[in-house]
Design a protein around this nucleic acid. Structure first.
Lengths: 115, 115
DNA sequence: CTCGGATCTGGAGCGCGCTCCAGGTCAAGG
DNA sequence: CCTTGACCTGGAGCGCGCTCCAGATCCGAG
């Protein structure tokens, strides 16, 4: 199975090497497998997961949120627990969307005023 | 015309006194009028503007964005300049909404999976 | 075998957005 | 007056999320 060097993984995910190591240290990804010499070897699965993390980071989730996300999905939680957690996150995101819409409304007013 | 003390203004806007002073120092609000003794006296207009600032902060705009926002709306820019700026901000917000929707989509998948 | 570029680790540094603190001033009640 | 509490200023401190650095190690090309 082919694996990716840190540089390639960084390139493919758009996340810097430093940030990849930071995410791994914080438990958001990995642990990433190592070669005999100690270098990281990213699998396609790792890349996929990094994509998910990036997606959530872009949506404004913090590192602690994501750590919790990983913990909930990986460890021994009931499906119910997971659904509860996921719904909470979803609801927080809805509120962020609502805040954005409010601000966009204000912008629209101003735009209309100056047009 | 009745004015508000810092504590009252903080209470009414939900923004802490320290943050109000910080916003003023950064040029996001005010300058706030002072009493003979040097204390701040917030007008209803100030409170309204603080509400706008809060709305944009909640939508994720940074301090620098807001400073620019104030500058654009207050100083000698053409309506065209203002509209260009406002549309840029709006478009950035739309992208944030899109990022949120992507993440919510992922969450929905997981929720469906565990339900 | 040697060289150079990629990677490793631990830790320092940084920009943002507050938040807190010390030391002093103002003003209303007693 | 004097006390008390809200407020003032300048500046330090903090949590977050990276980002950068030094010094060592690995490894493929020549």
């Amino acid at each position: 199975m082919t694996t990716l060097t840190p540089a390639t993984a960084a390139d493919r995910t758009g996340v810097s090497i430093d940030t990849l190591r930071y995410y791994e240290k914080e438990g958001l990804i990995g642990p990433i497998r190592r070669s005999a010499g100690g270098r990281r070897e990213y699998t396609e699965d790792d890349v996929f997961w990094i994509g998910l993390v990036t997606c959530f980071r872009d949506a404004g989730l913090g590192i602690a949120d994501l750590r919790e996300f990983v913990a909930i999905l990986r460890s021994d939680h009931t499906p119910r627990d997971r659904v509860v957690f996921l719904r909470e996150r979803r609801s927080a995101m809805e509120q962020r969307v609502a805040a954005l819409h409010r601000a966009m409304g204000v912008l629209d007013e101003k735009i209309a005023y100056y047009s």
